[in-house]
Design a protein around this nucleic acid. Structure first.
Lengths: 139, 139
DNA sequence: CTAATAACAGTAATCATTACTGATTTTAGA
DNA sequence: TCTAAAATCAGTAATGATTACTGTTATTAG
């Protein structure tokens, strides 16, 4: 009845997002899916990414920096964005849902949720930074 | 020496952002400034918004929804976005900076900051919602 | 099996933003 | 104050991400 046709294309996109933790952009998803479905269209990728987002099967990340990213991990978790290389990583941390209560305290509207992005230097860039420091100081 | 020339255009843009709490988009800033400087170019608005952001004189908000918004209030505060009408509002709430420590706990990179956006229904839309409910239930 | 319809590939259009150009302002220093 | 170097400008073209359109194909309820 609820006529939602599940195409091969949508299945592949969902499966790919479930298999990676790299938070790819629409363009990266496109490149990746083309390895399996060479003649898939970029429009199809966008349409399915948006539809999967609407149904809650995947998550869209609008963390600034030009284009959106997508995440197949729908369980509540937080994201870190490296300001040097742009990598998006999952963070292993406890829920900070209670910040919604802080926000609601003096607010006459209704707080339904929040999105927090953390910024800084990722482990890999941090390592590189330290290596360069060592080579400069000569130690 | 530090040759940063402060043009009339930049001054007006900064002043306008300081005078409003409406978190306008680049396009809205453009429309507003044109009332004072009719032949200003949209490119000039973007260039100055970006430069003012770089120097920390204003803040750029990337809260999803297509285009960025700008805020002349540089003191630390939080933002709420109404999922119905899209309005962006300032929230009167205490700092939740300590969430950065939560994030850093099991992370081997360096957390330098975070950005939190709150979502829900704004006071105005909430009021409208309630009014409609009343007219439907007949009370 | 088959008709209704959701989804498709391909392409054109849109929207926000950035880059380029030659002309104009601003400002540091004579 | 005058001047020249450099930042900025207006106007316009280009870019990049995303969405909309079109005629065709694939999926699924009955």
């Amino acid at each position: 009845m609820a006529g939602r046709k599940y195409s091969k294309q949508r299945a592949f996109i969902k499966q790919y997002l479930a298999s990676t933790s790299s938070h790819p952009t629409a363009d990266t998803v496109y490149d990746e899916i083309r390895k399996r479905i060479p003649n898939i269209s970029l429009g199809t990728v966008y349409r399915n990414l948006n539809q999967l987002t609407e149904t809650g099967e995947i998550i869209k990340l609008s963390c600034g920096g030009g284009c959106d990213r997508f995440d197949g991990n729908t369980s509540p978790h937080y994201h870190f964005i490296c300001t040097l290389c742009g990598t998006v990583m999952d963070l292993d941390m406890d829920s900070i849902d209670f910040v919604n209560k802080c926000a609601a305290k003096h607010f006459t509207g209704r707080i339904e949720g929040s999105q927090t992005y953390f910024y800084g230097t990722c482990p890999s860039c941090l390592f590189q930074e330290e290596a360069e420091l060592v080579s400069k100081t000569g130690l």
